[in-house]
Design a protein around this nucleic acid. Structure first.
Length: 788
DNA sequence: GAGTTTGAAACT
DNA sequence: CAGTTTCAAACTC
């Protein structure tokens, strides 16, 4: 694994190699080279923003768990010198899970941490180019400083995490700064650096290195095209938001830094007011947060601090929830609730063991997460897509590694842990990804801009889901159905679907909101709804029950299975089919041509796992035939309005995609995926449940719709690549190879026409970038794809 | 907007 | 695991 990746990376890295930062990193850890591959892509403006990292990470995962382990080893080596011989798991534990390990000897937990961390690392590393590098390396350095893991490991770990996050955020801010406001940025950047140094000094003296690294990194970042930087910003900001959330509950230490970063970000960030708005909210919280932070700092060493932190965070949340009348908050709450609840419980109820372990882990995870998110954000703009899928994402994220099964199982065994990882991870990650998406979206489309602009703020704050919901909600304040339709019609509405449950009390998977891991909101027309923050305990308990029954119950239904899609393989060969429904559909009468079919709804082709009869899924038949869907079919199924919207969106998406695709075959495709979903977004299910997957799948779908289904087929191979490849990449990478169907489809002669997708694609690249980011988010799912 | 159809989720 | 029931979305009128 290492060798191949390194080899691949080799070329791309060369660029970085020149930079002192790169050298520094290299000295620290051998692993980096692997990342570089992605990085190279990242360097490209489009690519950089794109998900390459995400793809890569998932890809790695998809390849095999072994990869993760290897990577860990590789990464660990730098740190692990002490534990050079440590197994993969051990190495990871050392890095991210040190706290947990010390606190708890639980191998299971360690493994979980390890897995999550690994996945995160990989994701972050691959996707993010330099950011990830920094993060990774920094920890290593810290570890070195820390010396034996036993000593104050927890603090060290936190520190690392904090540093990591800070570095990332700061670097991002710096980057933004440099790009947007060179003058102010310089000062700001200096300030950040100084802060960083401070932190480093307090906890360990890596200051000089860090500063130099940071400065170098910033330089590099700045170096990157503005687009990339923007993408980073979005991702970073998004990441920061989640951090804040997490930090409140989990990582108070990080909070201060994060908050500061956020503030700086806000100041620096000229971008969407919405984001700033969100950040503002956090800032308001910062007041409390500062106090908490101070306390936390004083308590840094004390393990007890975790509890106090948890309490403080809890209090904070309560206060916020109460105070916040803003839709944003409501949105946040909606998204966060599950996560928060889990965190709260952990912090409050679990007490030392659980709380400590959880806290420590989450922090690390969070940091990693943020990174991932960032990467995701870049890559995918799939804001819409992401949002809906967030709930699923969380689970997926938790199980990001293909071993998701193992992870889930473990988590299940531990109960709470499972919940947390899944909930926290999923929520956060989604949120992050979503936020970026929103931003990107805002920038991308004027239409969306208006809506998003309003929603954007809220979006930023919460997870993607929340944002999606918020948007949808805000947009659709009318009756749920109407809103739904609106949303459906408007691609954006995707995320905002609401439930209409009457008997399930919104505590069953029947409820889209519940299934998506979000609370029901006013727009919902549900009756006797228990899926509300007020009934948090009930919701969590129910969730647990469902998860105990089916660990993947809240995972995205549609997964870009690496299996289905060949890894990298051939972009051309990849087809939309790469994404598959987790369990497969069981359609009898709809021929998989209506939204009754989850596969179709998710914009993915049916697979072997499907038990459908008379499958005519336009995205891909069960038998492996290339997407059968013809223009007529699609048209028939889709409403004219939807078609139009989809087309428009698809055009935009296509345009965006094209650019990336042109730049990089791999990344572009990914980008395209997210875009695609939008058309489908109308479907509430997709948006929520299968964000990522949806995104990917939807991407395909959209492509088809846009260009009309034909496009995919008809599109020349090159074009297809853009459309299909992206999707494939994410999942494909993970799985390695694609399902026959995908390959067949892509190659399938079906492509009767060469539809002029180009025209569509031609649109502005900027939009693409945003959407692309969304797509990136999708990639995370692939890892989950267990089914195949 | 009401009613029907559909298939997933839940239950047995 | 299979069959049945429940449920809510998707769809039709």
């Amino acid at each position: 694994m290492d060798t191949p990746e390194r080899n691949q990376i080799g070329t791309p890295i060369s660029k970085f190699e020149d930079s002192p930062v790169f050298n520094y990193i290299n000295s620290l850890s051998p692993i980096k080279p692997v990342k570089s591959t992605h990085i190279t892509q990242a360097f490209n403006p489009l690519n950089f923003a794109s998900l390459p990292s995400v793809f890569t990470s998932p890809h790695v995962n998809s390849h095999k768990e072994s990869r993760f382990l290897k990577r860990h080893n590789c990464l660990d080596p730098s740190k692990p010198e002490s534990s050079s011989g440590n197994g993969d798991k051990i190495g990871t534990n050392e890095r991210t899970g040190v706290d947990a390990a010390q606190l708890q000897d639980n191998s299971a937990e360690l493994q979980e941490n390890f897995d999550s961390e690994v996945s995160l690392k990989e994701a972050s590393v691959q996707p993010s180019s330099e950011h990830s590098k920094f993060v990774i390396e920094l920890p290593c350095t810290l570890k070195y400083d820390c010396g034996s893991p036993d000593c104050g490991v927890t603090l060290n770990c936190d520190f690392e995490v904090g540093c990591m996050s800070e570095l990332v955020s700061k670097s991002a801010s710096l980057i933004q700064y440099g790009q947007e406001a060179s003058g102010n940025g310089s000062s700001e950047g200096e300030v950040h650096l100084s802060e960083m140094c401070r932190i480093g000094q307090k906890k360990e003296g890596m200051e000089c290195d860090w500063e130099s690294l940071i400065s170098d990194a910033t330089g590099l970042l700045i170096f990157n095209s503005p687009n990339n930087s923007e993408a980073f910003k979005g991702s970073i900001q998004k990441s920061t938001d989640p951090r804040i959330r997490f930090s409140t509950s989990l990582m108070p230490q990080l909070h201060q830094n994060d908050i500061k970063n956020l503030q700086t970000m806000q100041i620096i960030d000229p971008i969407g007011s919405g984001e700033q708005y969100e950040t503002d909210n956090p800032s308001a919280e910062t007041g409390e947060g500062n106090e908490l932070q101070e306390i936390e700092q004083t308590q840094d060493n004390a393990a007890e601090s975790n509890l106090s932190k948890g309490m403080s965070s809890h209090m904070r949340e309560q206060v916020e929830s109460e105070d916040v009348s803003n839709l944003h908050r409501g949105m946040r709450r909606r998204c966060l609730d599950f996560e928060m609840a889990g965190a709260r419980r952990k912090a409050l109820g679990d007490a030392s063991n659980f709380g400590s372990s959880m806290l420590s882990q989450p922090d690390e995870k969070i940091s990693c997460y943020d990174k991932q998110l960032v990467a995701i954000k870049r890559s995918g703009d799939s804001s819409r897509c992401i949002l809906p899928g967030i709930g699923l994402h969380l689970n997926a994220l938790a199980t990001t590694s293909k071993d998701h099964k193992n992870i889930k199982l473990e988590s299940l065994s531990s109960g709470i842990q499972l919940y947390l990882p899944s909930s926290t991870a999923s929520l956060h990650s989604p949120t992050n990804s979503q936020e970026p998406l929103h931003k990107s979206l805002t920038s991308v489309s004027a239409e969306r801009d208006t809506d998003l602009a309003e929603n954007g703020v809220s979006h930023v704050e919460d997870a993607s889901q929340a944002s999606a919901y918020l948007v949808s909600e805000e947009l659709n304040q009318n009756s749920p159905k109407k809103k739904r339709r609106r949303l459906e019609h408007a691609g954006e509405s995707e995320s905002c679907k609401r439930c209409n449950c009457k008997k399930s009390k919104c505590l069953k998977l029947y409820c889209e909101c519940f299934a998506a891991g979000v609370y029901c909101i006013e727009p919902c027309s549900c009756q006797e709804c228990f899926n509300k923050p007020i009934h948090e305990d009930t919701v969590l308990a129910t969730r647990k029950q469902i998860e105990s029954r089916n660990p993947l119950a809240f995972a995205p239904k549609v997964i870009r299975s690496s299996e289905s899609v060949t890894e990298v393989g051939d972009e051309s060969s990849k087809t939309p089919a790469s994404a598959r429904h987790k369990r497969g559909c069981n359609c009898k009468k709809s021929n998989c041509l209506k939204k009754y079919c989850e596969c179709y709804q998710g914009g993915v082709g049916c697979s072997i796992s499907c038990r459908c009869e008379g499958c005519k899924n336009a995205f891909g038949r069960k038998d492996g035939c290339a997407p059968i869907v013809t223009e007529t079919d699609i048209e028939e199924e889709t409403d004219a309005c939807e078609m139009e919207k989809a087309i428009q969106k698809s055009d935009i998406q296509n345009n965006e995609e094209q650019n990336p695709a042109t730049t990089l075959p791999t990344t572009p495709l990914r980008l395209s995926r997210p875009l695609v979903p939008l058309p489908f977004s109308s479907n509430g299910k997709l948006s929520r449940s299968s964000f990522l997957t949806v995104g990917s799948s939807s991407g395909l779908y959209t492509c088809q719709k846009l260009g009309k289904p034909n496009i995919l087929r008809s599109l020349p191979k090159l074009e297809r690549r853009f459309q299909t490849v992206p999707e494939d990449e994410m999942p494909e990478i993970l799985c390695g190879n694609s399902s026959p169907s995908t390959g067949i489809k892509s190659a399938s002669p079906n492509s009767k026409r060469v539809s002029p997708p180009h025209g569509d694609f031609g649109s502005s690249p900027s939009r693409r970038s945003g959407r692309k980011l969304i797509l990136q988010s999708i990639p995370s799912f692939p890892s989950l794809t267990p089914q195949h």
